[in-house]
Simulated assay, not measured.
Amino acid sequence: MGLMDKIRGEFIDIIEWTDDSRDTIVWRFPRHDNEIKMNAKLTVRESQAAVFVNEGQIADAFPPGMYTLQTQNMPILSTLKGWKYGFSSPFKAEVYFVSTRQFTDFKWGTQNPIILRDPEFGMVRLRAFGGFSVRVVDPPALLRELAGTDPQFRTEEVGEYIKSIIVSRLGTALATAGVPMLDLATQQGTIGDRLAPALSQELASVGLSIPKFVIENISLPPEVEAALDKRTQMGIVGDLNQYTQFQTANAIGDAANNPGGAGEGLGVGLGMALGQRVGQQYQQPYPQQQPGYATPPQGYQQQGYQQAPPPAGPPPLPQQTQWYVGANGQQLGPFDQNGLHQQVASGTLTPQSLVWHQGMAQWTPAAQVPELGTLFGATPPPLPPQG
């Protein structure tokens, strides 16, 4: 008689599973067509569950503990087999051990971008990735819906199924979160905490739950990130005219330190640009001379000096400063002085509102700008007491 024949001829009196892997969810006890001895010892360790299956039908499930198999603690199996009370003969049944610990080595990511509508940027495309953990909460449902008769059901066999559900739910979660695109990074934890219960509810029918869902990163397409970088640079630069002058001065210094070749060409170009700028300044109208006689230098005769011709009309009015106001997260303007009075009257412009005009280094509260001191007026003193 061979070794396998000897093994097949014995009754099973100890049933247990010592898991030496990190990715096995379900493991079928190797029975080798042997019968299980009545009063056999069943050991179910912590983070395990044992499920008996009789001829394809799920019978009794056992939580962690040590059991002596009898008809009293196997009511479903006793009913399926028609055992009477006190039945003590060996029997045949499949025993599946299910790991109920958390499996934390799952990763997810969006293969294709998710299209969302952002209140500031309009239609945007986002990509995201992260991790999640999985736990079995209903072993019979898992065997019935996913594992089946698989003798060793592993995490890789259920990972893709869960990832597809995550991606389908992620777009809805981001769209309904009501978080602007630029603030998503600060809300990743909150969105992940909302997604975990929703995913667990959807996976409850197959006996699984998602105890933890993590969003590690939400990113934009490269071209959108480049545009945001440009926008950030413009905000840091501030006054573009002053920045241009500063860059021109630096370029002149670089050209002087690099005579010949590119330095000479750069110097010629900068010289032409400066010449045009000086010419524009000289073309600006000078203040009109007051009517009367021109006054000659002291010691010269009065002859030859003629009365200055009267001006054709008054000089142009000075250009009013154009102001911008920051209110409710939006940039309003430009406004002249009258426009600012209207904003104060409507309550949009307050002493705490941020204002800016060309030449200012940064946005400043209106109360700290001397030019706007007359907009808000002074608070009158209290009325004197009535005598």
Score class of each variant (00 low, 15 high):
Pro30Glu: 01
Gln352Glu: 11
Val95Ala: 12
Pro90Gln: 03
Phe52Leu: 15
Ile58Asp: 03
Lys212Thr: 10
Ala273Met: 15
Ala327Glu: 10
Pro310Met: 02
Gly267Gln: 12
Asp23Phe: 03
Ile115Pro: 01
Gln72Arg: 15
Met74Gln: 08
Leu372Asp: 06
Gln280Lys: 12
Arg8His: 01
Asn39Tyr: 14
Ala249Asp: 04
Arg125Trp: 10
Val136Met: 07
Leu42Arg: 06
Val98Trp: 00
Leu274Ala: 12
Pro384Arg: 07
Gly207Ser: 03
Arg154Met: 11
Pro211Trp: 01
Ala226Phe: 13
Val136Trp: 08
Tyr161Leu: 15
Pro315Leu: 13
Leu270Ala: 03
Gln358Asp: 15
Pro314Glu: 15
Phe11Ala: 13
Asp138Val: 01
Gln288Leu: 13
Phe87Tyr: 14
Ala147His: 05
Leu274His: 10
Glu371Pro: 04
Ala251Trp: 01
Val124Leu: 08
Thr176Ile: 03
Arg154Glu: 10
Arg231Cys: 04
Glu216Pro: 11
Gly299Pro: 00
Leu3His: 14
Gln343Tyr: 01
Glu145Lys: 12
Ala226Tyr: 13
Gly263Gln: 00
Lys107Phe: 14
Val98Ala: 00
Phe103Glu: 02
Asp33Gly: 02
Gly238Val: 02
Pro222Trp: 14
Ala308Ile: 15
Phe106Asp: 00
Gln245Ile: 09
Ala177Lys: 05
Ala255Asp: 02
Lys163Phe: 01
Trp363Ala: 15
Asp229Lys: 11
Ala128Asp: 08
Gln247Ile: 07
Ile215Asn: 10
Ala327Thr: 11
Gln331Tyr: 04
Trp323Gln: 01
Tyr96Thr: 01
Ile25Ala: 02
Gly238Met: 10
Arg277Ile: 07
Pro291Val: 07
Phe153His: 12
Pro140Val: 06
Ala251Lys: 02
Val344Phe: 08
Ser89Ile: 09
Leu143Thr: 06
Ser99His: 05
Ile215His: 10
Val237Trp: 06
Arg22Val: 05
Glu94Arg: 00
